[in-house]
Nucleic acid binder design. Structure first.
Lengths: 112, 112
DNA sequence: ATCGTCTATCGTCGATAGACGATGGACGTT
DNA sequence: AACGTCCATCGTCTATCGACGATAGACGAT
């Protein structure tokens, strides 16, 4: 689901605000940012891989991954016994565009 | 506070991750996004103005504004009895750049 | 001086986030 | 079959968020 970069920011759009806020919330945790950076460097990572990188409990990492998946920033695929997580670059780019759109709106609707 | 688009995302960089996460956290609430959009349409707004727009209690709006100010996204200046809040477009642009940098890093460090 | 307005802060409350350990299921290996 | 590995989920705990009403301070107006 794409948040169009510069269309529906015009109206009040509590809906779009909520959608963007939800995605930003998923990004607004240092561990999840680190996870994304780690995922970006590898084709697909299993949970344990991320755990070894982050110095957090496995259950904690699993939850962070779940948050990222539910926000649509990371794709999930179950392999045999492993779970593979892969970064969704398009979704990430969509967020970047949404933020840029918001900033754009805020800068262009300058009053004077 | 620039997060260089492609330098310190290589190392673990928990510091930059925390800084970005903090700013995104300020953005990750629908009411605060709405406040930003409202502020962008006016030169400077007082608290009551935002209250009338948002259908939230005055104390709640005041707290949201405080969050935005502390995150550096909104500038604060005390007038006589009013408090004037003005959007900080540069800071907002900085966040946009940071997010773009993160996404860029995630897309460029593509493995294969 | 008194009243009304605007605002920040305090105190409270419920809900949620974030962390962990423990557990159990699925699967590969021996 | 028995064990080890990987993982998601559950339960728990603490801390924080988000909302509100109430309050008090600052100021203008009367």
């Amino acid at each position: 689901m794409d948040v169009s970069p510069s269309s529906d920011f015009n109206e009040c759009g509590s809906a779009s605000a909520k959608a963007l806020a939800a995605k930003l919330a998923a990004l607004s945790h240092p561990a999840r940012i680190e996870i994304l950076k780690h995922l970006s460097g590898n084709r697909a990572c299993c949970c344990k891989d991320v755990v070894q990188q982050l110095d957090l409990a496995q259950s904690t990492v699993s939850q962070h991954l779940k948050v990222l998946v539910e926000a649509g920033l990371v794709r999930f695929s179950a392999e045999r016994q492993r779970s593979l997580y892969e970064i969704d670059r398009e979704a990430l780019a969509g967020i970047s565009a949404s933020v840029a759109g918001l900033v754009d709106t805020c800068c262009s609707s300058r009053p004077a």
